[in-house]
Design a protein around this nucleic acid. Sequence first.
DNA 1: ATTAAACTACCTACTAGTAGGAAGATACAA
DNA 2: TTGTATCTTCCTACTAGTAGGTAGTTTAAT
Lengths: 190, 190
Amino acid sequence: MEQTTSEKILDIAQSLVVAGGYNGFSYADISDAVGIRKASIHHHFPTKAELVQVLVDRYTQRAESGLKSLREHVPGPVEQLQAYLNYWQKCILDASEPFCVCAMLAAEIQMLPEPVAAHVRRHFENLAAWLTSVLKAGVEQKLFRLARSPEEEAQILMASVHGAMLSARALGDPNLFAAIVGPQIAKLRA
Amino acid sequence: MEQTTSEKILDIAQSLVVAGGYNGFSYADISDAVGIRKASIHHHFPTKAELVQVLVDRYTQRAESGLKSLREHVPGPVEQLQAYLNYWQKCILDASEPFCVCAMLAAEIQMLPEPVAAHVRRHFENLAAWLTSVLKAGVEQKLFRLARSPEEEAQILMASVHGAMLSARALGDPNLFAAIVGPQIAKLRA
DNA sequence: ATTAAACTACCTACTAGTAGGAAGATACAA
DNA sequence: TTGTATCTTCCTACTAGTAGGTAGTTTAAT
C-alpha cells in the first residue's frame, strides 16, 4: 500500500470541501469515493469537526512548508512571488485544486466549529506574513516600489488572489485567475 | 402589514445564505426565524432551489438598479466608484450584509442547481460591465489613468472587492475591507 | 494475545417535501 | 343581504431519505 486509508479519506474530504464547503459533503460521500463503509471513517476520524480540523491543519502545514521552501530555493523575491502565483495558476488550470481550502472555509467561517475557524484564520495570517516578507525583501533590493506599506500591499495581494480564484470559478474561466493576478504583481515592480 | 410573508422569508433566507451558503441553512431555520411552520414556507416557495433562485434574482435586480441609479445620480466616475465601495464598507461595518450573496454562492457554484448558478454568473458579468463603464468614463474625462484595458482593470477591481470581503471575514476585521479596497482605487487615479 | 481496521446493524435527529384540512378574505349571484 | 364558491395562507401530521454518530463483531497483521 502506498497511501494509508486516513490519507485517502483526507484527500477525498479536501476535494469535497474545495467543491462545496463544510456543509457541502457528508461521510456517505467520502464512503462512496474511498470504497469504505461510513462507520469505518468514524474509526479514523470520530467526528466531522475533527476530520476537517485535521484536514485544515495538514493543509496549512503543507502550505507553510511550501512557501518556506520557495523562499529558500527560488533566487529572488520577484521570482518567489511569481512561483507562488504559478502554483495556483497550474492548480486552477488543471483543476487539481481549483480553490484554496481555507478561502472556501473562510467564506462560511461563522458556521464552523471554533477550532477549525481558528486554523483558517491562522492560514490567512501566515500567508499575509509570507507575502509581506517577500515584498519587504523586494523593496530592500529595489525590485519593488510600493505605494503603501509592505503589510498593506500584502493584504491587497492576498485579496486579489482569493478574488481572482472566485471570479475564475464564478465565470467558469480558469485563465481569468492569471489575467487578474498577473497585472497586480506587474504594478509592484520598480 | 408592511412586509409580506414571502418577503420576510426571502430576507431571512438571504441572511442565512450570506452566513453559511446554500447548504448552510434549512427550511427549519427559516421557520424559526420567521415564526411560521415549515410547510407554510413550501406554500410560498415549493422547493429550496426555487427559493434561492428567486432570492438571487431579487438580489441581482436590486444590485443592477442600485448601480444604475449611482451612475445617474452621482456626479462623476470617481465618486460613483467611491459610492459603490462606501455602500459595501457600510454593510460590512454594521454587519447588515457582511458578504455578497452572489460571492458566497459563487464559491459553491459547482453544487448549485443550474438555474441558480446561471443567475450568479450573470451577476458577476453585470458587475464587471458596470465597473468597466465607470472606468471608461473616468478615462475619457482624464480622471483615471489605467495600466490595462478598462475590462481588465474592472476584473481586477471586482476581484479585490470580493477578496477584501473574504479577508475581512476570515480575520474578523471589518475595517480590513476599506484598507484593501481604498488603495486599489487610489492607484487608478490620474 | 493484542491491536488496528474494517464490517453489519442500528440510532436519533434532521432534511426537503407532501397531503389534507381550517380560517379568513374576496367575489358574486340570487 | 345572504349564501356559496373560490383563493390565499397557514396549519397539523406525515413521508422517505439522509445526516452524523454508536455498539458490537469479525478479520488480519504484529
